[in-house]
């Protein structure tokens, strides 16, 4: 017999390469955090003096609070609306067999395969033609054009693995359409819906190219960061950057812990004799 070829050797090499690339992904973010504690008004390495004063300054700044509030409002609305639309969109994408489905699948994915800056600009023309003044509310709309397809895709993955006989069985056992949805469909699809929601929130929170053209007089955090970066250095850039990164990290961690708790509770119940 010839040796089976995912050899130990190649597995180790692949693992090492993966770790190298992961470091490549995380080093810039660590650099941002590092810079946020530097005392100097301009960045210089090695860092000579350490401070947390930029954090208190950033948090006290009223304009930063405005930014955070705007970004938060946009992301929250985008999440709620996108998940609602995408849930049914995903059923049409992956579940039901209907005439026109193949075409729908392709059209729905187009916005993902589309240059975002151009999408943002086109929306700007569209809003002005419709006589709508751009503000954070139009940004919600703009983000959704890009995020709804992504969430449809994420929920679809769950829908594909969903056995429709489960719904039929519940229906057969006397459940109404609404009871089938509540008892069977929603609980089984909830992991897909939750991950779709997380993606919607964080992608909206971090989006720059769409916000740039659709927020009008309002400004989101990424827009502000970009403006400051292009015009010159201020220590508030790494500070606000670190703050939003840790915000995202804490959010993800909380969701992860909540999910683990649910799993453990289920297992615990299953394990009790």
């Amino acid at each position: 017999m010839t040796g089976t070829f995912p050899t130990r050797h190649s597995t180790t090499l692949t693992a090492i390469w993966t770790i190298v690339v992961l470091l490549f992904l995380y080093i810039p973010m660590m650099a941002v955090v590092l810079a946020s504690f530097s005392k100097l008004r301009y960045f210089r390495f090695p860092i000579t003096g350490w401070t947390t004063e930029w954090y208190s300054k950033t948090l006290e700044s009223l304009s930063v609070r405005d930014l955070l509030w705007t970004s938060l409002s946009v992301a929250t609305l985008v999440t709620v609306l996108s998940v609602g639309l995408a849930f049914f969109g995903a059923l049409a994408f992956a579940r039901y067999d209907w005439t026109g489905r193949k075409l729908y699948q392709r059209l729905v994915l187009l916005p993902i395969f589309f240059p975002q800056a151009v999408l943002g600009l086109s929306l700007l023309l569209w809003f002005s033609a419709l006589g709508i003044t751009t503000s954070w509310k139009t940004a919600v709309f703009a983000h959704m054009i890009w995020i709804v397809p992504i969430v449809i895709l994420i929920i679809s993955i769950q829908v594909y693995s969903f056995d429709s006989a489960l719904e039929e069985a519940a229906f057969d056992l006397g459940a109404s359409r609404w009871q089938v949805m509540k008892e069977i469909t929603l609980p089984i699809m909830s992991p897909g819906i939750v991950s779709g929601g997380i993606f919607a929130f964080l992608l909206s929170w971090g989006n720059f190219p769409l916000s740039l053209f659709s927020t009008g007089a309002d400004q989101t955090v990424p827009e502000w960061l970009y403006a400051k970066m292009v015009s010159g250095y201020t220590p508030m850039v790494p500070t606000l950057g670190s703050l939003t990164m840790s915000g995202a990290a804490i959010l993800l961690l909380l969701i992860y812990l909540a999910w683990m708790a649910i799993v453990r509770r289920k297992r615990g119940r299953a394990g009790s004799q």
Partner: peptide
């Protein structure tokens, strides 16, 4: 009532 081929246990 039916017992499904896949059983369709929830």
């Amino acid at each position: 009532c039916m017992v499904f081929q896949s059983l369709a246990l929830f």
